Simulated assay, not measured.
Amino acid sequence: MSSQFPWAHATHPDWRMSASLCLAQIERASRVGAGAGATLGFLYLTDHHAAEAADILAFLRERTGVTHWTGAIGVGIAAGTAEYIDEPAIALMLADFAPDDFQVFSGATPPPERLARTPDGRRAAWTALVHADAATPDLADLVHDMRGKLAGATVFGGVSSSRHPQTTIADSVLSGGLSGVVLSENVAVASRVSQSCQPIGPVHRVTESAGRRLNRLDGVPALDVLLRDMGAPDMLQRRATPAGAPTMPAAVQMLQGTFVGMGSGDAFMHGDYQVRPLIGVDPHERALALGSDLDEADHVVFCRRDRAAAQADLIRACTSLREQIESEHGGMERVRGALYISCLGRTGTLFGGPSAEMQLVQQQLGDLPLIGLYANGEIFKDRLYWYAGVLAVFL
């Protein structure tokens, strides 16, 4: 195989036609038989093909000779500068990792032990691409536990957005739980997360909260802090009701596009925090209601989610990734392939129109093999994200 992973994508109502078109692209890219030298296939399907997923997998395995496959099924998938949303489509990429440097896992096949070593002495469970079924109970806890099974620090992936019971691929088509592939220390991976938001103020310490209710920040009522960060600290006085709270129209307008980034420690320095929607206010207690529990988060930052913020944050993530690759790996020409898991909620107009998000990624990183999934939740490190984009590059 060439230094870059051969990859392909196609859309057609007949899965045989799509799969055949993909294999023809692979053969042209590699200038040899489809799958020659490949040991692992990455495969993403839209759920228009979910019922035929097992047939597609068998067809690709037979035609390429590649035994091991990992991937997921969703409402949308991505490839290159294109996105395929709610239409029949296939995207695949073939890698030539050494057989001892990866292991496909699922509920039936456990990953390597955390302290396992490859024959050359490197750590066998270093990174992992993880796909999950959204119907799995305690999914966030399972993702956290998966990180603990690795000797390295990187977990990346996403939650299937399939409307069909078939949701993930790990050497077979599966439903439920986690699956994916564990990679050894010999496989270099660089990854970043983009939140599609930008902070509108400083990071604040949580001083009083309960479940999804955020009462006080830095010792001040949370609503007051939000208004100050939004540049409207006098809104309570200027547009107050007799109870001393903003009018309902003002509060609704204030909430539109406002999110809360939650985390602890120095997570905010690296953009590594979870973003949840702000869903309401308690005007009398001047408290805020969030879209999920705060859990162990002890700091928050208020964010705006709009086109400019989404584009700026994705550029930030790509720039940071590119700088790491140039400083640690000798430049972008060392990139062999990439996976991009983005939230299904980021499609449409958030980035300016169809495929705008994928086009922005390739503008920032160059023309590289790139496929991915539009997910129902994104996985990065030991957390489950919403509204995020997770980019992983193989070097």
Rank of each mutant, 00 (worst) to 15 (best):
S2K: 15
R16S: 12
A19W: 00
L23W: 01
R28E: 15
S30F: 09
A34C: 09
T39I: 06
G41K: 07
H48W: 10
A54Y: 06
L60N: 04
E62C: 09
G65F: 02
V66F: 00
V66K: 00
I73S: 00
A79N: 04
D86H: 12
A89T: 04
M93V: 09
L94T: 04
A98W: 07
F105A: 00
A108T: 14
T109Y: 06
E113L: 14
E113H: 13
D120E: 14
R122M: 12
R122G: 05
P137Q: 03
D141C: 09
H144C: 13
R147T: 09
L150N: 08
A153V: 10
V155Y: 03
F156P: 01
G158V: 02
V159E: 08
S172E: 15
G176N: 12
G177I: 06
S191L: 08
C197D: 10
G201D: 12
G201P: 05
T207V: 11
R212N: 13
L214V: 09
L217T: 13
L223Q: 10
L226I: 05
L226F: 02
L226K: 02
R228C: 11
D229N: 14
M235N: 10
G244N: 11
A250G: 11
G271R: 10
Y273R: 11
Q274M: 14
V275S: 09
V281H: 04
D298E: 14
R304T: 14
A309I: 09
D313N: 15
T319N: 13
S320C: 12
E326W: 05
S327W: 08
G330S: 10
V335P: 03
G337T: 06
Y340D: 05
S355H: 13
M358D: 08
Q364K: 10
Q364D: 04
L368R: 06
F380Q: 01
A392V: 01
